[in-house]
Write a protein that binds this DNA or RNA. Structure first.
Lengths: 227, 227
DNA sequence: TTTATAAAGATAGTAATACTATCAAAAATA
DNA sequence: TATTTTTGATAGTATTACTATCTTTATAAA
């Protein structure tokens, strides 16, 4: 028996749904390979077309521009993380364990999930670490936000904020702590590998240390008297 | 009497030192205005040249490309923050107060500093929040890092890590906590204004709340038993 | 004062990027 | 079989990201 996970995203992300055709799926698959390989700045639709064996115009039929394609991939990633988190925290009673699970899922390098044929989660994880922030660091954040293009990130943030509130209902900053946690799980990993002197994990480069750091910080904040 | 603050940066950032000529200073001044106004993605040397009343080629004599110019501005900003932090924590005895001062300086919207003629710190602050991360989120981070192009950020991070170690010598993650603090002071501010549902400050939009959040988190982490 | 030299301005040119438009061929669907 | 949809092929344009060259102007040394 086979399981197949499909994630349906906001229609404003694309001109034609890439999940609904072979070419569309190839665009998703190969754009992940190519962005991971050459970086988002050097990535162009022309290069992607060459890689796939189609034409530039063909790709423009699916995505307005490369920023929208990035948004699609990033939204896909956060939706998938929320889905995973839902699975892994199902039937777990204590909010503490749920928060710990969230930290673990976010700070651990992902393995490719076979249930999603054309998406390589491992590579996508690297892309989100290196380029994810670029999806909202633009002059058009607010319009994109009105179009709900950041919804998956916000949803994940809200889920974890929910765990935080369940753990300590008196804590004043559940959303900020949640977004800090999510962002730092990625940043500290990126720093550890590329700018290690911004971290305390430079020598060993162990994910477990990032998890210890984040746990200590989060529960430090949540367990301390909240003025 | 007049005071004049000049910050000398890594020579690899530029082809010709922009601090040493009128045109160079105009490049710095106007690039800040223009990047803040249209965003880093839309910013080009041609537009900048038009703004200044010089030619594209003229600007290329100072900076290899717009990424290097961004790095220059970002490095300038972090150097200036370190300088300010040094000033403000001089003669303050307790490390707790120093950490609080660091948080306050980082999380408070800056006023233009008259001692630096051609640099508008207020606008530069906005640029660093919106585009600062793009200076290291590239495929050439590691080469840039070898060239010490991120030194000012690292230095500031190390100074604050020093305060953290002084406050609690047993704490295991002074550098990671420091980089988290610096990054979050900017991110939370950016989120508060553009993606408020990622924070708890959406309604009031008060800097004081960000400061409270960061202080509570940092001292929560530092005062809790460190396993 | 001439004379070297460095900086700035003016102009041109090129390869690549970020698209848009059009038309024909192929595939799917009615 | 006819019709609609999707893809492929080709062309074209404005802008970007540079490099090159040559002249003028400002500065400073002889």
């Amino acid at each position: 028996m086979e399981f197949n996970l499909t994630i349906r995203l906001n229609e404003k992300l694309y001109l034609r749904n890439p999940e609904e055709s072979e070419l569309g799926k190839k665009i998703l698959q190969q754009s992940i390979n190519l962005i991971e390989h050459i970086g988002f700045e050097s990535f162009t639709f022309k290069k992607l077309a060459r890689e796939i064996g189609t034409t530039e115009a063909g790709i423009y039929r699916y995505f307005e521009n490369k920023h929208r394609l990035l948004l699609y991939l990033v939204d896909w990633y956060w939706s998938w993380q929320e889905y995973r988190l839902g699975l892994e925290t199902k039937n777990i009673p204590g909010p503490k364990t749920k928060i710990q699970m969230a930290i673990r899922l976010l700070a651990t390098r992902v393995e490719d999930d076979i249930a999603t044929g054309h998406i390589n989660e491992k590579l996508l994880h690297d892309i989100v670490m290196s380029d994810g922030a670029k999806s909202w660091l633009t002059k058009h954040v607010e319009e994109d936000n009105k179009d709900k293009l950041f919804q998956p990130f916000k949803d994940l943030c809200a889920v974890i904020a929910g765990f935080i509130k369940a753990y300590n209902p008196k804590y004043s900053f559940p959303f900020s702590l949640s977004s800090t946690l999510i962002e730092m799980a990625h940043s500290q990993y990126y720093y550890m590998h590329h700018l290690p002197s911004l971290t305390d994990f430079g020598k060993e480069k162990k994910e477990e240390d990032i998890i210890r750091f984040l746990e200590q910080m989060v529960f430090g904040a949540l367990d301390s008297p909240n003025k």
